[in-house]
């Protein structure tokens, strides 16, 4: 399982593997929004939590359609399915690799974006905490979506239609944490709920992903 994780990580880090693409996308969205809504600092500060989260959602969506597709094309997915390693662990390893290549860089880069969007200083720790606790759920949900659409030729668009509605609870709680944190309210209740969703998603969704993979490979 760890071997698979490191292999996926190496593949992503290699040139053309798509590492950094999500991060660049995250930045571009954050730059485009002020250009669209105008440079007024108070407006930007109000919408900064939402923009950060929506940008994170879209950025994590970006590399999902290649999560299993490459393995399926070269046949290594069939090998993984017949290997002694259960597919649930494969799904977990994929989720972890996806998070390390998208969720984690986003979390680390988010203070810079928050600065661009004029987020109040009190919101910074909450933003980082919320993204750190929330993005693993995005990776787990995305793995499930990728497992559902692995057999399809042009699954990318369908994948976003399937995955984005599932992102809604994470988005709501995540943005709520930052919004409350930024205005100095207590933000722990939504943060706990966010962590709960992440824990549930990491714990349970690999089973659904593995089931979907088995159905697709049959």
């Amino acid at each position: 399982m760890t071997a698979l994780f490191w292999r996926d990580l190496r593949l992503a880090l290699r040139a053309g593997g798509g590492f950094g693409l999500g991060l660049a996308f995250f930045f571009i969205v954050a730059v485009l929004v002020p250009l669209g809504v105008g440079p007024e600092p108070t407006t930007l500060a109000r919408i900064a939590p939402g923009i950060c989260w929506v940008a994170a959602l879209l950025a994590s969506l970006l590399s999902l359609d290649r999560l299993f597709a490459l393995d399926q094309e070269d046949g290594s997915l069939d090998l993984l399915a017949t290997a002694p390693l259960p597919l649930e662990s494969v799904a977990t390893a994929k989720t972890a690799a996806h998070w390390v290549t998208t969720g984690l860089p986003l979390t680390l880069a988010s203070p810079v974006v928050a600065m661009l969007l004029n987020l109040p200083a009190a919101g910074y720790p909450w933003l980082v905490a919320a993204l750190f606790l929330g993005t693993p759920a995005l990776s787990a949900i995305g793995t499930f979506g990728a497992a559902l659409t692995v057999g399809l030729k042009r699954g990318g668009l369908l994948l976003s239609l399937l995955v984005l509605p599932l992102y809604i609870p994470t988005l709501i709680f995540g943005a709520e944490v930052v919004r409350r944190g930024a205005v100095g309210m207590t933000a722990t209740p939504p943060l706990i709920l966010l962590a709960g969703i992440t824990a549930g998603a990491i714990g349970l969704l690999p089973f659904a992903s593995a089931a979907a993979l088995r159905m697709n490979l049959r």
């Binding site: 599932l166 809604i168 709501i172 709680f173 709520e176």
Partner: peptide, 11 residues
């Protein structure tokens, strides 16, 4: 997730 969204939206 629909159920979760329902509660999240209430929140």
């Amino acid at each position: 997730f629909a159920l979760l969204s329902r509660y999240a939206v209430n929140f």
